[in-house]
């Protein structure tokens, strides 16, 4: 028994020491950043072997709610300014948010789909899927429909909206519904189409595109503030920009 206790204590002590040596940066990032931030974190960890990056991806609205409820995030990368504001209005940031990437909307359809153009979304009986209203991708889609109402008339948008069959909890789930063949079309980011097979994207006219901007902020209460700053600087660095561009994100204005 004493031998077991001694062994257990030694193991615990070793674990505690390793944990103290390895610094952790917890990053909460928008769903659409899943692939890009996973790659960024790998490059960052390769350059900083003593730092471990923990990633959590969900809708920015979900992440903002979790941060407001005390989730231990060190960095928040949001897909729009509304969700970023919820966090900054609570005064949880250590500095001002910085825009680090842009994006654009596309219509995602199955590869064999007969849909060709944006205006085909008004076809009756089409199963159209959007992200939820509070989710940035869903909010951008609503803004796009507002622009479409001005350009093509309220009647067109009325027809498109009547085709909406679901508003999904985040943009990746929205894209997945098309990839699974369950929906005929989804409004997602151009970057979401890249990693999926069996799908293609239809462009949304430039005149209808909302301004999509991703802000990033560091948050209070980090256990390793220097490592957190280093991660932020890495995302904003030329190397970070290049990596993001490789995943289809545009440069912020």
């Amino acid at each position: 028994m004493t031998r077991f206790l001694r062994w257990a204590l030694a193991t615990l002590l070793a674990a505690a020491l390793t944990a103290a040596a390895a610094q952790t940066v917890t990053v909460f990032a928008a769903s659409s950043l899943t692939d890009a931030f996973t790659a960024l974190a790998h490059s960052f960890e390769a350059a900083n072997p003593s730092v471990h990056v923990v990633l959590d991806f969900a809708a920015s609205s979900t992440l903002a709610t979790q941060i407001l409820q005390g989730a231990p995030a060190d960095v928040f990368a949001s897909a729009n300014e509304v969700q970023m504001q919820r966090v900054t209005e609570a005064g949880l940031q250590t500095g001002p948010p910085t825009p680090f990437a842009g994006n654009r909307l596309v219509v995602l359809v199955p590869a064999g789909s007969g849909l060709r153009a944006f205006r085909d979304l008004a076809r009756p009986g089409l199963l159209l899927v959007l992200a939820a209203q509070q989710v940035p991708a869903g909010r951008y889609a609503d803004l796009m429909f507002d622009a479409a109402a001005r350009a093509y008339g309220a009647d067109f948008v009325q027809k498109v909206r009547s085709n909406i069959v679901s508003r999904e909890p985040n943009v990746r789930q929205t894209a997945a519904k098309v990839a699974l063949g369950a929906a005929d079309a989804a409004i997602v980011y151009a970057t979401d189409a890249d990693g999926l097979s069996g799908v293609r994207s239809i462009g949304v006219p430039a005149s209808l595109q909302p301004t999509i901007l991703y802000p990033l902020v560091t948050l209070k209460g980090a256990a390793a503030p220097a490592a957190v700053r280093a991660f932020r600087d890495f995302v904003l660095s030329p190397a970070g920009r290049t990596a993001l561009a490789g995943f289809g994100f545009t440069a912020p204005p």
Partner: peptide, 10 residues
């Protein structure tokens, strides 16, 4: 949420 999606009222 997977098979029926989420649309208010439907």
């Amino acid at each position: 949420i997977v098979v029926a999606g989420s649309l208010a009222g439907r």
